[in-house]
Each structure stands twice: as structure tokens, then as C-alpha cells.
Design a protein around this nucleic acid. Structure first.
Lengths: 105, 105
DNA sequence: GCCTAATGAGTAGTAATCAC
DNA sequence: GTGATTACTACTCATTAGGC
């Protein structure tokens, strides 16, 4: 985390030009946003994933419109879902046990 | 990554007006637009390509009207398609339209 | 602590452009 | 026109970081 902070402090420290800008205040905490899907959105994506694991651009857009999510988010979900399935070939159909929301197909 | 950053310094950017204007205020990357064809448009172009690899101007225009694309885009596609076929004499027909799509249309 | 959404490096295919 | 090159889009794979 905070790689920017890191290497900023260990260089020559030539940062006294006009400054009085102490290092401690510097970097912005970027905070990566993370979307969490509703069960409805998951339903739509999962259902589609079964019939097409690699949707093309316009299908992606269609799914985006259906779910209200951005095309990029949908795309990333499909990427992760493919990777997930590849890593874990066991459950490619229905999860065996019914623990509450295993969010997996 | 960071392709935008890359070519940002060597394009227009008439930034030498008054010196000491560091590059860090990256103005704007022009971003070359790239059309992506629908399978229908590809179908039309590919079908025609088989019977005529060098369509003349008015044939190009006719294809443009059929597909809704510009004449220039059609022309470039035929140029690239000839080059592609020359480079790769194996599959002389039908470049893949979507990488993992098993069945198209 | 796990699960996983998001990011980044590396790669590929190709539309668009450049040089000729 | 061609051939070479550029730059945009999308993918995989590995990794990082957010939230129950």
C-alpha cells in the first residue's frame, strides 16, 4: 500500500526548495472504490455467464444497461469469473451446499 | 501500460512558448478513434472480399451504404485484409471476429 | 481472515496512420 | 496502391486492497 509514499521519503530529500511542505501531509489517500453487487445484478450476470463466458462488446453494454452497472465493471466481473472458474474447476454448475449466498454460479 | 503518457510528449503540444512549463501538466491526448465492426458488417465485407479483393471506388461506396460505415473505413479494411492475407496465407477466409466465440451468428 | 473487485504487467489482434 | 508502424481494445495471469 502507498507505494508513492514509500519512495518519496528515501531519495535525496531535496525537497526543501520553496517549501515548508512537510512530508507527512503529502499524498492523497486514493482509496480504491469497490462495487458490491446486488443479488439481482449477480443473478443477471451469472445467468448470462452460463450461456456465454466471453460476451462481446455490445453484449457487455446490454448487460450494463440491464444492471445499471458500467460496462467496465461488467467486463471485470466476467474476467474474474473466468479466472475463478479456471482456478477452481470443481463447481462449474451449481454449488453443492447451500450456505447463504455463495455468490457463485 | 501508460500509452497515453508516452505519445503525449511528441505530438502537437506547442509548449515552448514561454519556458519552464513542465510537461507535468499533460494537456490532452488526442485519442485515435477505432471502429469496431458488428458481425453483420464483417459478414458483408468478408463475403465481398472473397469475390473481389480490390473493389473500385463505386463498389466501395456501395458497401459503405450497405454497412453504414464510411467509404474510408471500408477501404482501410480491404487494405488491411489484403495485407493480412498476404502475411498469413493459411486461412484465406474469415478472420475470427471474436476471439473465443465458438459460433458466430 | 476470507472472498473477490480492482489494478497492473505482459501479450495479441487489428483499425488507422505513415512512409514510399 | 503496398509495407511497416502506431495506437487502441481486449484478453490472461498475478497481485493488491476493500468489506463483510
Amino acid at each position: 500500500m502507498l507505494p508513492n509514499l514509500q519512495h518519496m521519503s528515501d531519495n535525496g530529500n531535496i525537497m526543501h526548495l520553496d517549501g515548508a511542505l512537510p512530508i507527512q501531509y503529502l499524498p492523497k489517500p486514493p482509496k480504491r472504490p469497490r462495487t458490491s453487487f446486488t443479488s439481482e445484478q449477480l443473478q443477471i450476470m451469472q445467468t448470462h455467464f452460463i450461456q456465454d463466458k466471453n460476451p462481446d462488446a455490445q453484449t457487455l453494454q446490454r448487460l450494463a444497461d440491464m444492471t445499471g452497472l458500467s460496462r467496465r465493471v461488467i467486463q471485470v466481473w466476467f474476467q474474474n469469473c473466468r479466472a475463478r472458474q479456471k482456478r477452481n474447476p470443481l463447481h462449474d454448475s451449481i454449488p453443492p451446499l447451500d450456505r447463504y449466498q455463495t455468490s457463485w454460479i
